[in-house]
């Protein structure tokens, strides 16, 4: 029992540190997790690649998914219930620093939002934010239509995926009321039917 509580405590602190130092979201947590595995022996490199695959094939933020998965794996030696509690404690550790820091930033921004310097900074910042989103879009598109290999040839294009994507894009433009959830479910069903 004490061993389990100590494990939870250590887990919370270690994941708190990951949340505190991983800047840039999602995959930025990866190097920290690799390090955690090496230091604690809680999981191996193979576990990590497994965990990334699972996190990417389930909904939700990547960093949170990975923390949940590891939290369960580490503490499930003590039984399923202990595992579930571990799966809650690890992600809570990851989000705690975020919540504290963002609330502080929000307070500062609220105070200075009328300052012209802040407004000028946001003028540049929004364009950069937009650029980052577009580059994320490009990398998602590459994985969806070409795959993870680095080479590019006409044969490697996944035409089925491309067509589905064009259809869904057209729907979002023509029928603005359609909810993204519906389109995601539709796409998943299409993927299964046409073996994408």
């Amino acid at each position: 029992m004490t061993a389990l509580l100590l494990l939870y405590g250590e887990m919370f602190i270690r994941f708190f540190l990951v949340g505190l130092f991983a800047i840039g979201g999602g995959l930025a947590t990866l190097p920290f997790l690799v390090d955690m595995g090496e230091v604690t022996g809680w999981f191996t490199q193979l576990d990590i690649s497994n965990m990334v695959a699972i996190s990417e094939s389930t909904p939700g933020p990547l960093g949170i998914n990975m923390a949940t998965y590891i939290g369960f794996q580490i503490s499930s030696n003590y039984g399923a219930l202990a595992g579930i509690l571990g799966a809650i404690i690890a992600p809570l550790g990851v989000i705690t620093p975020s919540v504290i820091i963002i609330i502080i930033v929000s307070k500062i921004l609220n105070r200075f939002k009328d300052s012209k310097y802040v407004q000028y900074a946001f003028y540049g910042l929004r364009a950069a934010s937009f650029g980052l989103i577009v580059s994320a879009l490009l990398s998602v598109a590459k994985i969806a239509f070409i795959g993870t290999e680095s080479g590019f040839s006409l044969e490697s294009i996944n035409w089925l995926c491309l067509v589905l994507s064009v259809i869904i894009f057209t729907v979002t433009m023509k029928f603005k009321k359609v909810h993204p959830i519906l389109l995601i479910v539709f796409a998943a069903v299409m993927g299964i039917i046409f073996k994408m």
Partner: peptide
């Protein structure tokens, strides 16, 4: 495979 296609279109 399907969901990725949707995600590209939605983003």
């Amino acid at each position: 495979g399907g969901i990725r296609a949707a995600v590209v279109a939605l983003i």
